[in-house]
Design a protein around this nucleic acid. Structure first.
Lengths: 336, 336
DNA sequence: CTGAAAGCGCTTACAG
DNA sequence: CTGAAAGCGCTTACAG
């Protein structure tokens, strides 16, 4: 099957390629009669625009890229990313854009190389950047490369973080208030890597919400993995620091922490997770967690990027508030 | 930053564009001296090949596509797909190919439309097809479209399924033998949709392995979701059919089945899952499961597709055998 | 080994 | 409104 081109359509109809192009793109410059003939013929011949020809002449790739740089082994366990991708992909496909996906693991710099290559080859029109770090080099690099980008969870133009979309603060309030109502006055928060901007935000927000309620709070840093969370909880238990409830920055760590508590015979301690998943739903005991609607967050970021590429202004809807799903680990504080 | 092109390099060096192209692509037709000058200049100017220009002149997109057509909500819960993607992506990026990802949900025909569009636009050079169904229309459609493809889990040229890569039979043997050794002589298998080829394969394989060992076996069809599996197990318990062990075709259903058993007070029944995941690891009780190395399977399929595109012959390594991870649900049969 | 030229399939000023 | 032509940045026969 030789590809059918606009030259074929033009030849059949005895008009110029230019007219065909204008007609097919809904642009001015053709009579309505010609346009209809062209459109009909294109349908009859089963014409599709050549993606690469269009990309070359328009210098647009009609694709946007995402680089996932968490540990691949962990990616599979965190439904958060799949749901995020789902939202992104949904918006992109409606807009006729493709999603290019790249997983680079945690080796530093591998993501940078991908961006450089994508920019150099003109393979994507823009990228969505995840997991913003403190002093993240990526915004500056992408700006230098001339590759448009959106920081997932941050409104463009506010890279400083002044107007976070993912309102960590509201989430922290939900979690802390819940524990407060259960009677907890001494808690600990097992955070993810504090090199990540949103983890710092979470810690600060938790600190503030606790201060308001006169709750004593401890922090321990882990890296989202089972093993580090298990270790941190075990250390806390042995440290003499007292706490009756734990906040975990993701589901895997929550499950790990529960295991550590059980292994230490501290089964009466309450726990909440910042991320929900089937893990929270089916672990033993089941874990109270925040449903954060990552698909909607993905949809927002994709929409913003497309608006940015089109030079339109932001009319992005307000972020969806999270919901707290209460489960078995929402234990009341033991009476003092 | 205006793009630097081979014309720029040619001009600076006073040679032709053709020489530059040959040099940069490592082809014959240039002297070694010229080649080195060209390569050095390209590096100095920070040249990258324009992806779209190359695609247009070579008529290759240097991209392969995957359409995921399971329920997006479920996709997030099944690490199987993320791990599969990881393997695919790894092979592709080593080969300088991109991965185009599309999620279409379960609406029939939406995947077909994507393939037609990709083929028409020349957006991908080939696709990896997942979840082959009985009488699957996709192979014929893709052949008609002239879009090269690999059926994940099937050796090309054996679409009939004569030589499955994912050896469901060996997996069935592992599971059934395990239950047999624990003393079980009456079991039931909660399958996924029997419209999927590999689910039929699994059922047949389980039937055969049971027959060999004189094990009585029942089958009940579910659709990989929690709710259907819960319902099937509840029905089985109420049916009067006796069984002391259950096989589930995925992790989510295993967890659902355990819940159904617990709710019915049938806690002594053994269970195994065909897929492993953190869910099996942290549910209560923990679930014995097959580690099937989906990343390796993805790597195989990607490798095969690239070989197919290059017109090379298969030198794909043998599939990795699965491993049984024994956990708490590996209960011995109650003595009769 | 090297250069001039045509071609991949579109888009888009530029004349008529 | 319409057509002839140049251009996007490469690749690749084709002469020298």
């Amino acid at each position: 099957m030789a590809r059918v081109t606009i030259a074929d359509i033009a030849a059949r109809l005895g008009v110029s390629k230019a007219s065909v192009s204008y007609a097919l793109n809904g642009q001015a410059g053709v009579s309505e009669a010609t346009r209809q003939k062209v459109v009909a013929m294109a349908a009859e011949l089963g014409w599709h625009p050549s993606f690469s020809a269009r990309a070359l002449s328009r210098s647009r790739a009609d694709a946007i890229g995402m680089v996932l740089r968490r540990d691949p082994a962990l990616l599979g366990t965190e439904p958060y990313y799949m749901r995020l991708l789902e939202g992104v992909e949904d918006v992109l496909s409606d807009a006729g854009q493709s999603l290019l996906l790249r997983m680079v693991g945690t080796t530093p710099g591998r993501d940078i190389a991908v961006y450089e290559r994508w920019a150099g080859e003109g393979r994507v029109d823009g990228v969505i950047v995840l997991d913003r770090a403190i002093d993240d080099p990526r915004p500056a690099l992408l700006a230098k490369l001339g590759l448009p980008f959106v920081l997932h969870g941050v409104l463009p133009g506010n890279e400083s973080g002044a107007e976070r979309i993912e309102d960590q603060h509201r989430d922290a309030q939900l979690l802390v208030e819940h524990l407060f109502e259960l009677g907890h006055r001494r808690i600990a928060h097992i955070t993810g890597p504090l090199a990540l901007a949103h983890e710092v935000d979470r810690r600060n927000a938790v600190r503030q919400e606790c201060a308001v309620r006169d709750i004593a709070v401890e922090f321990a840093e882990a890296d989202y993995t089972f093993d580090t969370a298990y270790a941190r909880v075990t250390e806390l238990l042995g440290s003499g620091i007292r706490f009756t409830a734990l906040i975990f920055s993701n589901d895997v760590m929550a499950v790990a922490g529960l295991r550590a508590l059980a292994d230490a015979g501290a089964r009466d301690i309450a726990a909440v997770s910042w991320d929900d998943s089937m893990l929270c739903q089916f672990s033993y005991p089941t874990v109270t967690a925040l449903e954060r609607y990552p698909d909607r967050a993905g949809r927002r970021s994709a929409t913003m990027l497309l608006e940015l590429l089109d030079g339109r202004s932001w009319n992005t809807a307000a972020p969806s508030p999270s919901t707290l799903v209460v489960r078995e680990t929402s234990r009341a504080a033991a009476s003092p």
